[in-house]
Design a protein around this nucleic acid. Structure first.
Lengths: 191, 191
DNA sequence: CCAGTAAGTGGGGTGGCCCTCCGTTTCGCG
DNA sequence: CGCGAAACGGAGGGCCACCCCACTTACTGG
């Protein structure tokens, strides 16, 4: 009998991985300079690869953004885990939201990534990760009657992302964002 | 002696005015369908004019958006005027903000117009109009100790615009936006 | 060590977009 | 009416996302 179809690759080929890394690095730099709608061709150019390679590794702009922001998001998730040990659940939630907001303004375009579009079909790893992380904090805060009972993480993140988006191209973005965020968080508190 | 340079036109030529109107109408329809980043060439195509004509009448996308939203914005300004007579200044402000938010989600892209880019060089009539209108309401609310004393209209509008932007592509945009807005406004109140 | 092969690559093409130049048409004033 | 200026719109340049396909390269089993 014919032998089975070729066994599927277990790991990426070494050069492919290297190229992917070069692309992510270049994208990170360019996005920091120009924002999340930077030219993908310019990214490929700076990474020293063809545009086809970029598109093969990252089929959509969103996919590339997620790769770029992955470690930042992981850091935020870790922070959420730490804050679960905080004695004051309400304070913990609000501290985390401000941290998320700070990252979102600092890294142009992260905000848009987090809010995410209700239409994205699948694979929104970034958004899922942060949603899950935030959910734990929110649940605890809700149990302690520190927040309005009808809040959802999605709403919270939308709020944070929206504010980041609105201030990210401001002259004094971070300060403005922090102020607006503080105000919004105030509204989230249980009355 | 040579006669003075030809006297400058006082009014637009009739066909020019008609074309401008057709363009605004087409843009309004397309923006309602596809959002504020709709293709300008498609607008020109639907209006039955060449793309050069569109660009002559509206040198920037922002200029076109302002023309499209002008009457909506005027309505909001009028409403602000009316609300100045409301006996409760805090309530009046919050009602107006919700009205602004509702319009912003309903008319895709209005939100972005309102928040406006800190870098726009000049001529942001739309933004100016609404800023002035809101300022009166805010001043009155502040005098009545109904809001935090450090709020500015710009911040308020940024908040509203951001929320509209964040929810405008949602399945259930209006409801979501109203809820988030209510929360944010709650944070704006004086403690 | 070596060849076979699937995985990976990138140049070039396509179509869309924004915007401008410029020859042609149209308006409206005198 | 007739003429000059105002307005028009198609063609074309530059840029971009994305796809196709002939070529190259890394891994694997003998």
């Amino acid at each position: 009998m014919p032998k089975d179809a070729a066994p599927p690759r277990r790991t990426m080929r070494a050069d492919a991985r290297r190229n992917a890394e070069k692309i992510v690095a270049a994208a990170g730099a360019l996005i920091a300079e120009q924002g999340a709608d930077a030219s993908l061709e310019e990214v490929a150019r700076r990474a020293g690869v063809g545009s086809a390679t970029l598109h093969r590794h990252f089929p959509s702009r969103q996919a590339l953004l997620e790769a770029v922001f992955k470690d930042r998001v992981e850091a935020l998730c870790a922070k959420a885990g730490d804050l679960l040990a905080d004695p004051d659940p309400g304070q913990a939630l609000s501290a985390w939201l401000r941290a998320v907001g700070a990252h979102a303004v600092a890294n142009r375009g992260l905000g848009a990534s987090l809010m995410r579009d209700a239409d994205t079909t699948l694979g929104e790893t970034c958004h899922d990760m942060i949603t899950n992380a935030g959910d734990a904090l929110l649940a605890r805060a809700r149990a302690a009657d520190a927040v309005r009972p009808d809040m959802t993480v999605t709403q919270l993140l939308k709020l944070v992302g929206a504010i980041a988006l609105a201030t990210e191209k401001d002259i004094d973005g971070p300060a403005e964002a922090d102020l607006l965020l503080a105000i919004a968080i105030d509204g989230v508190r249980a009355r």
